Computed example of a mutant assay.
Amino acid sequence: MNSNKQNIIQLKNVIATRLTPLIDNDFILLDIPNHRNIGDSLIWKGEVEFFKTLQHKCIGQYNRYTFKKSDIKSDKTIILLHGGGNFGDIYESSQSFKKYIIERFPNNKIIILPQTVHYNSEANLKRDFAIFNGHHDLYIFVRDLISYDIIKENFNGEKLKLAPDMAFFLDFDSDIRNTETLKNLYLNRTDAEAIKDSFQNVIEGEYDIKDWPTYNSSSQRLNIISNYIEALDGKLSNVIKYFPGSSLIIDNAYGFKKKNGMDLHINRGKEFINQYHKVYTTRLHGLILSILLDKEVVILDNVYGKSKNFYDAWLKDFNNVKLYVKNES
């Protein structure tokens, strides 16, 4: 059994206690991640597991390219927007989709599932919340106190909620492996949130430096090709969804991709983490997946403190989870 089992159960209870009462009708999940980020697949799977505990039904799941306004047929349908770390001005396509939904569905209850918030521009923040504050029944869940404070200054505090990441609704106890290797992993993100500093002097013993295995980090060319394929899938889905019989060609969740992509990504992530004795990670979901697989993990953080802020909010009592703090002296 996971050495953090009770701590994980407590986080699940926080989510259920704060989120379940708001979902008082059938609902739809939007902006699900039709891409290679294993972390987003973990969040999505956690959301799906959470839905199994609810009295009301999920009547559809759409990514931002397959969704049509006509897919929501009633003002009573609750709209859930996928959680993660894309609230702000780093990931423009996801933020623009949030604004589109909030403006187009003024009479539906909308719940943004637990997010990390980050803005590089105060002007962008003010512009976004001019839209968000125009909706009378919008709830925003955030994953850390820094995000909470950012939104509290700009939004109705009664509809702002603090909750852990939805991936904590996953149970991977049967996947826990006591590996014989002493090799460690330095899971170093290579995307827009990557930090410039190297942490290699922090890592003990023999180790590999890798990003998620879905990112082809050993071949920049393959990674670029994969990015183009994902972009093309979205563009084609966005056009073909309006054709008669489009549902026979594209899947609402996966577009033109394999219909089990979420589970494939998660399985690759579990196999990847389970190869190592100890994990040093700049990815939040490298941290969360390592906890779910009962690995010793050291938090190195991303460029704006996402993982540190999450640790401060929820993980201080967890076993074998340490936060690296750089010595400035």
Score class of each variant (00 low, 15 high):
M1H: 10
M1E: 09
S3G: 11
N4S: 01
N7A: 15
Q10R: 15
Q10F: 11
N13Y: 02
T17G: 07
T17K: 12
P21D: 14
L22Q: 06
N25M: 12
D26Q: 04
F27N: 05
L29M: 02
L29C: 01
N37K: 01
S41N: 10
L42I: 10
L42Q: 02
W44T: 07
G46L: 00
T53G: 05
L54V: 05
Q55A: 11
G60V: 07
K69G: 08
S70C: 06
I72V: 05
I79N: 08
L81M: 15
G85E: 04
S93W: 02
K98E: 10
I102K: 04
R104K: 14
P106S: 08
S121Q: 14
R127C: 14
A130P: 03
I131Q: 08
F132V: 02
N133A: 11
G134N: 13
H135Q: 02
H135P: 01
H136P: 11
D137C: 00
L138K: 03
I140M: 03
I140W: 04
R143S: 00
L145G: 07
I146V: 14
S147P: 06
D149R: 13
I150V: 15
I150T: 13
K152D: 14
N154Y: 14
F155L: 05
E158N: 06
K159E: 09
K161Y: 10
L162R: 09
P164L: 13
F168E: 01
F169Q: 06
D171N: 11
I176C: 15
T181I: 00
L182D: 00
K183W: 03
N184C: 09
L185K: 11
Y186P: 00
L187E: 12
T190D: 14
A192E: 04
N201Y: 11
K210C: 12
D211S: 07
D211L: 01
S217C: 12
S219Q: 09
N223F: 03
S226C: 00
I229P: 00
I229Y: 03
E230V: 00
G234H: 03
K235N: 14
K235P: 13
K235I: 15
F243T: 08
I249Y: 05
N252P: 07
Y254E: 00
E271Q: 14
F272N: 13
I273V: 13
Q275K: 09
Y276P: 04
T282P: 10
R283I: 04
H285E: 01
L289E: 03
K295F: 07
V303N: 15
Y304L: 07
F310M: 04
D312P: 11
D312N: 13
A313C: 11
N319R: 12
N319F: 06
V321F: 05
L323P: 13
L323N: 12
V325E: 14
E328F: 04
